[in-house]
């Protein structure tokens, strides 16, 4: 039962990603061609509210549901890792029109061919794990 809240939040996530068309390959193409504000509006709104909210959490030292302080861990410093990894991700994002969240929302929406994309994304994750020590980080 303790997991039901995550199921509900996931459902809301899936509905809103689909209803705002963020799962659409067309919308991702439109974004990378800078031909509409739509996707920038979605990500921009989330980021602006996110920055404000995170700042407030830190300022007032808010705690989570079990009473532990909400902490943010700084990510490891690197340029190569984020730039190269990010670029590889971007190549796939523009080609398949979906990052990992929208992949599964698309499957639920009825585009079952996204199961192929998801399976190979998992294979890609495995490949990274298998050769990560040989890559610049």
């Amino acid at each position: 039962m303790k997991f039901i809240k995550y199921l509900l939040v996931g459902i809301v996530f899936g509905i809103v990603m689909a209803k705002s068309e963020a799962i659409s390959w067309y919308r991702i193409q439109e974004m990378f061609r800078f031909q509409a504000f739509h996707m920038y509006g979605i990500i921009g709104t989330a980021v602006v509210l996110g920055v404000i909210g995170v700042a407030l959490i830190k300022k007032f030292k808010l705690r989570d549901i079990s009473g532990n302080p909400i902490v943010f861990y700084p990510k490891n410093k690197s340029i190569a890792r984020y730039l190269i990894g990010g670029s590889i991700f971007g190549l796939g994002w523009a080609l398949s029109g979906a990052c990992p969240g929208p992949m599964v929302v698309n499957i639920g929406y009825g585009f079952l061919t996204f199961a192929i994309v998801l399976v190979f994304a998992t294979v890609g994750t495995y490949l990274y794990g298998a050769i990560k020590d040989k890559l610049p980080h």
Binding site: G85, G92, S96, M103, G124, Y126
Partner: peptide, 8 residues
Amino acid sequence: GGLLVGFG
């Protein structure tokens, strides 16, 4: 497309 997303 999937491979690149997962790896990246």
